[in-house]
Design a binder for these strands. Structure first.
Lengths: 147, 147
DNA sequence: GTTTATGCAAAACATTTGCATAGTC
DNA sequence: GACTATGCAAATGTTTTGCATAAAC
């Protein structure tokens, strides 16, 4: 989804402009910082690394980026909420509890399975939240504790 | 899992005593209040309805009840954390966004599905969090908006 | 020029912790 | 009597809000 030669931070700005939000310097700064993230991050963490930007601006930017579908929220195993770049569309995450890496889970058939289970309960599904925790390939190799 | 004629609040207390926690009046009060809940509830909500009990006691009781497996935590669609009686063992919830009712989802094969999808990513699953939101049978009948 | 965004500080929440006192076992 | 639990108040940490100023369109 990442176009060649087109900065990721610009794509974030585009997502906002498509929705009528203005192109401002603080938002660009936030977008650039997010684009450089290699992992999911906490709102407060992002704010700390942008001392020139007001707290409210950071939080408001995160909010509208999520609305625009450019970011997604990630629920950590300890209950903390993080953010990460979204590859658009509905998906889930495989979150590594060792290194924090996350892989996207798309096009899997978990949705279908959910639907059929819910059907059996006469329940009409409108949404769901799924996070999967474990160890990624790399960490399994490095820490052969149980893998 | 609820034995006939044996108060639910006593079962909560039992779960604590099994783990070595003492039988105290405040804990009984909390247990009784929880036993009367028909829906998942917020910690703060429980505390407000127990003015005689200290805030810390309410929170500490919830924590040990979750550890003991007698309560489970429920993630609401808006990100708020609620609690509800647990029927022990691993399970998920179908949460009605209209009335707040929740049905347990047990013995379904979503776990297996997860494992196999994760395997394909060379990912070793150690846990997951799944909540399903939608409309329950009753609300579908009452509000025939789209069901 | 009108509308939207910013930054600050303060408010709002939810949850946790330190500690002296009280209650259990 | 030793150990655990309680209650309070204060600390913590995160997110939101009001509002005057500044910037974007």
């Amino acid at each position: 989804m990442r176009k060649r030669g087109y900065p990721l931070s610009e794509q974030l700005m585009d997502a906002l402009e498509e929705r009528g939000y203005r192109d401002t310097a603080p938002r660009r700064t936030v977008a650039r910082a997010i684009a450089e993230k290699e992992r999911h991050f906490a709102a407060e963490e992002l704010r700390e690394q942008l001392p020139g930007i007001g707290r409210a601006t950071v939080y408001r930017s995160l909010k509208i980026l999520v609305e625009a579908g450019a970011l997604c929220r990630v629920l950590l195993e300890d209950g903390n909420l993080h953010y990460q770049l979204s590859h658009r569309g509905h998906h889930h995450h495989l979150l590594c509890v060792e290194c924090g890496a996350s892989e996207d889970l798309m096009g899997c058939d978990i949705e279908d399975r959910l639907e059929s289970v819910a059907d059996a309960h006469n329940f009409q599904v409108s949404g769901h939240w799924l996070e999967v925790y474990g160890k990624c390939q790399t960490c399994r190799a490095e820490l052969p504790a149980s893998a």
